[in-house]
């Protein structure tokens, strides 16, 4: 693999992701409406129920809307990652995954390029959401929008790598629908996206422990701290380690010698 070949392939994969995303307007619209519904309806309702104490990185008491926005940004990335891996399962059933895997490039590189392209395509919507959230008085410092960029990229890559792993072990679309239910909802609800850890601890120590160990919580906290120009090194480390672990497992899943594909076959 030479460098110009690698760069051209990455460009090609990125371009395809962009064209596909722009032409699927329904998916774009629902990706944007989903967090706004949570913010405008769910958060408004919970605002009176949930009193929040001061927790870092916030230096004062904050409204529930302010608390929930980083979690919703992470949720957007989670849905995007799962939709993207759903597309990979679809690609595989429809065969276009074969095209990608028969490119004369190392397989890990092709998968990494696909992952990176998917994250890049997903980011503008998250930024749009963060700006729209200003109308709900969620106004982090201006530099926070810059500081949150690496946090969003890292989170997107980690969740995308997880989706890649899910797609490598999921052989059919039907299985995948189940995976969506068993993955997205538990991952999202058993995290600090909607409630701070001390609130969850009040509800039950088991739930609090699960949320504390959930890498998605680390992703949410990484984004939350970054948005207020603070760095959470533990969260960053957890997200990074998970990214590497998920990606390596996904590469093994797609390995021609070891992957599940070679054992199960599937197509005739």
């Amino acid at each position: 693999m030479n460098t110009s070949h690698a760069v051209r392939a990455l460009n090609g994969i990125l371009r395809r992701e962009m064209l596909r995303t722009l032409r699927q307007r329904g998916r774009l619209l629902s990706a944007m409406v989903r967090p706004l519904v949570w913010l405008a309806i769910f958060a408004a309702g919970f605002r009176s129920v949930l009193g929040l104490s001061m927790t870092p990185p916030y230096q004062t008491y904050v409204l529930y809307e302010v608390y929930v926005v980083p979690g919703l940004a992470a949720m957007m990335l989670l849905f995007h990652a799962m939709a993207s891996s759903l597309a990979m399962v679809y690609d595989r059933e429809m065969g276009s995954m074969r095209l990608l895997l028969t490119a004369p490039l190392p397989r890990w590189y092709v998968l990494a390029a696909r992952l990176l392209a998917s994250v890049i395509v997903g980011l503008p919507l998250v930024y749009l959401f963060l700006f729209v959230a200003r109308f709900w008085d969620v106004r982090p410092p201006v530099f926070g929008y810059v500081a949150v960029f690496p946090a969003l990229v890292l989170t997107g890559l980690m969740l995308g790598a997880f989706g890649l792993l899910v797609s490598s072990v999921s052989t059919q679309m039907e299985n995948f629908a189940g995976v969506m239910n068993f993955v997205i909802f538990p991952v999202f609800f058993a995290s600090t996206a909607l409630y701070p850890l001390w609130r969850l601890a009040e509800a039950g120590p088991v739930l609090a422990t699960i949320a504390a160990w959930n890498p998605f919580s680390s992703a949410v906290e990484l984004i939350r701290f970054a948005l207020y120009v603070r760095f959470d090194p533990v969260a960053a480390l957890v997200v990074l380690v998970c990214l590497v672990a998920f990606f390596l497992a996904a590469v093994i899943g797609y390995d021609p010698g070891r992957g599940l594909w070679s054992r199960r076959g599937g197509e005739g």
Partner: peptide, 22 residues
């Protein structure tokens, strides 16, 4: 199985493949 991207044009499908081959 057909492996073309239905939402992309014929030309875009070919360019995608060409990029994968460098």
């Amino acid at each position: 199985l057909p492996t073309l991207d239905l939402d992309l044009t014929a030309g875009e499908n070919l360019h995608y493949h060409a990029a994968l081959h460098g």
